[in-house]
Amino acid sequence: MSINIDIDQANKDLQGKSPAEIVAWALEKAKNPIITTNFRPYESAILHLVAKQRPDIKVLWVDSGYNTDATYKFANKLIEDLNLNVVTYIPQQTRAHRDVTLGGIPGVDDAKHEVFTEQVKLEPFRRALSELKPDVWFNAIRKDQTEFRQGLDVLSQSKDGVLKVAPLFYKNDQDLDAYLEENNLPNEFDYFDPTKVEEHRECGLHTQL
């Protein structure tokens, strides 16, 4: 399922628009939108921003099984407080089986890290997108997060033609701190992504899907 638009022109049209205006624009075009989350720091901003306009939107969470206790508690609180319609996907292999097969979490320079990332993140995401069949995918990526993302914009397309919308793309931590305070939203910094390890490293999700 895809939306036929001129992405370059649409990005120009959305320049200077607020995150809420970007969300409203995308929802007008969407028939089956989703929002993805990993409950990392500042995720309450994007979840609140989108769910406020579309309370029943499917919230896709690919739970790798490696989140911290704090992240799981944070997720539980947000799901309850915002009444989120969460759809959870998990890897096909258990963590215990993977620990034996791969010997725990491989380092980023280990050849097995690519296999690990495929198992715990990419395959579940592809499966979710195939089954949920969204036409619009809201995400929380921001320009200042990685070198790769500096070459993107508010709108982009997945390899399957899904319109990817990043309403917070040009916002920084200070902007989001203000949004969280204004809307009395929680935050949580005890977070670890085993497929990224390093904060400014891509995990492959937005480069391969």
Rank of each mutant, 00 (worst) to 15 (best):
L163K: 10
D193S: 13
T71E: 03
D193V: 11
N11R: 12
D160F: 10
E131F: 02
L78A: 00
L185M: 09
Y191W: 15
I3N: 07
H48F: 07
P55I: 01
P33G: 06
N11L: 09
I34T: 09
H48N: 05
F189Y: 11
K73F: 02
V120W: 05
F148N: 05
H48Q: 01
G161D: 04
L14Y: 04
W61F: 15
V108P: 05
L205R: 03
A20V: 02
E202I: 09
L102W: 13
H206E: 04
K31M: 06
D81C: 03
N32T: 02
K112R: 15
W61I: 09
V87W: 00
D173W: 12
E118L: 10
S158P: 07
Q93G: 01
T101S: 06
D63H: 02
T101A: 11
F192D: 10
K29L: 15
F192R: 15
Q208W: 05
E181K: 15
F138A: 00
T195I: 13
L132T: 06
E131R: 03
W25V: 00
D8A: 15
G161A: 04
V197H: 14
E80Q: 03
D175K: 14
A24P: 07
N11I: 06
S156R: 14
V86G: 04
N183A: 00
Q119C: 05
Q145C: 09
D190P: 10
V165W: 10
N4W: 09
Q157I: 14
I46Y: 03
A166N: 15
P134T: 10
P33M: 06
F148A: 11
Y89E: 01
G161K: 03
F148H: 08
L168R: 15
E43W: 08
R127G: 03
I57W: 00
N83D: 08
V165A: 11
D56E: 11
F125L: 04
T68Y: 13
F189H: 15
P33V: 02
P91F: 09
G161M: 06
V86N: 09
T207M: 10
R54C: 07
D110A: 07
T36P: 03
R98N: 00
R126T: 05
P55E: 01
I34D: 03
L185I: 05
D63I: 06
L132S: 05
V162Q: 14
E182V: 02
V108F: 08
E118W: 09
I46P: 01
T207C: 07
G107E: 11
Q208K: 14
E188L: 02
I141E: 04
L78I: 10
E199P: 12
T207R: 12
P186E: 00
S64T: 15
N4A: 13
L60T: 04
Q145W: 12
K31F: 07
Y72E: 01
L102F: 14
D153Y: 10
V115G: 00
W61G: 04
T207A: 14
F74S: 01
L14R: 01
V120F: 02
L205H: 11
D160S: 15
L102C: 04
S44N: 01
T117M: 07
V23T: 11
F125I: 08
W61V: 12
S64F: 08
D160I: 07
G161T: 05
N67A: 13
P134V: 08
A20F: 08
N4D: 13
N187W: 03
I7V: 15
I90F: 10
L132W: 06
K196Q: 12
E182P: 07
T94E: 08
